[in-house]
Nucleic acid binder design. Structure first.
Lengths: 222, 222
DNA sequence: TAATTCTTTACGGGAAACCGTAAAAGGGGG
DNA sequence: CCCCCTTTTACGGTTTCCCGTAAAGAATTA
């Protein structure tokens, strides 16, 4: 079994259970951080002391509070960690079930498993840890496994996201065109932007801009 | 201490911690349900057997899955429970921090405490249980206590909510007017609806309809 | 019942979104 | 270098939104 594991999870009500599960798996060294920044520092220090972590189990969303943090989401954390220690194994343990984000975690962030918090997630989590340790498999909660096969997901790119973001902030087409010009993003003609919005409306089956923002907010894109 | 407590919580990773906390408080009978419907049935049966629950600790949001459920949210559950057994004490234990919903839980649903899931919530939860048992106080997590004093919150009524819902579904003004006429909701002139939307835009400082939906979705109103 | 006030509805003009088409600009391949 | 193809931009007409004002209706009070 893994020797040294770090749990990055803000909710005490969850982290206590996860730590207990790890104890049942006979993990020797279990560490825990409530903030992304703390987690990153612990990994950095462990690496420096030549006693690196074998596995990181991280949540995706962390509640903001009074503390200023450099890393504020699980995505930022794992990307930073992967850069620092590429051989570390990573499991995401989150309630998030938006296809876009999960798929990108496997493809872009190189996570080893995704376990969805649910009614029977602790056994799944244990299972994932075992499988990664024994066979180095990629694991995803069974109820989400269709995501990796579905090709229609995630041709949405950064351009579309920032476009949707501007829209959701109440900017009109001409204002968005101006913003794009300022940032050097192309295309930035108001007509092209209009066309792009139209494509998004077709893709998401939205009947107008309001509907489009409503849908994409539900999907967690904005 | 309370004798018989029911925990309604779908995530196993959280319920296990809560149950453990209750054991530490020397609660004799601890029951647990993963679905709102199950929770309701348990309370009904306990009442029928003349061994009613003293306290219900419930989450607000429950993950939908294959099962068909009559009650799908914590709000629906506690409203149904309160009707069935008005003397029961109720604590909401949720990550939700939207002022509208919490305030309405105290005012309309008559909950005894609201504990926000966070980095130090288990001690808070224990505390709330103790205080309700000893002094029958109303408890709200300290970091949210300003909500009950803030008068500017929650003059938004059911009419506005359904209006926003229709908007977010992509209906245009005339279509919404028609829907309202069908349901016998007044006012239902498209002009009045337009005016109402305008009020909402002023209230939420939105610059257009898209912006308005974006804001109200963030607030959890829609 | 008449007067007053508040709410709801109607109307009109200008702004933005919506939708199709066409012109201009950019990018390989021959 | 020119041709073809794709992408980007421009333009015009229609619908819907947006915002002010005014009329009609409902409720309240004297």
């Amino acid at each position: 079994m893994f020797h040294k594991i770090l749990v990055a999870e803000d909710l005490d009500s969850i982290s206590m259970t996860v730590v207990q599960a790890l104890e049942e798996l006979s993990v020797v060294e279990i560490h825990h951080a409530k903030y992304c920044d703390d987690a990153f520092l612990k990994i950095k220090k462990a690496l420096h002391d030549e006693e690196p972590f074998d596995l990181l189990i991280s949540d995706l969303s962390f509640k903001p509070d009074h503390r200023e943090n450099r890393l504020s989401t699980g995505e930022e954390l794992i990307d930073a960690v992967k850069k620092l220690q590429p051989n570390i194994k990573m499991i995401i343990f989150s309630i998030e079930d938006k296809s876009f984000r999960i798929k990108s975690l496997f493809n872009n962030s190189g996570i080893n498993a995704y376990v969805s918090k649910g009614r029977n997630s602790i056994p799944q989590l244990k299972n994932a840890i075992q499988n990664i340790f024994n066979n180095d498999e990629k694991i995803i909660s069974t109820d989400l496994s269709h995501l990796l096969r579905d090709k229609s997901i995630l041709e949405i790119e950064a351009y579309d996201i920032s476009l949707l973001k501007f829209l959701s902030k109440g900017l009109i087409l001409d204002e968005i065109a101006l913003e794009f010009k300022k940032s050097g993003i192309i295309p930035n003609g108001s007509s092209s932007i209009e066309k792009r919005i139209n494509k998004l409306k077709i893709y998401f089956k939205a009947s107008n801009n309001v509907h489009l923002i409503s849908i994409t907010k539900d999907l967690g894109l904005v």
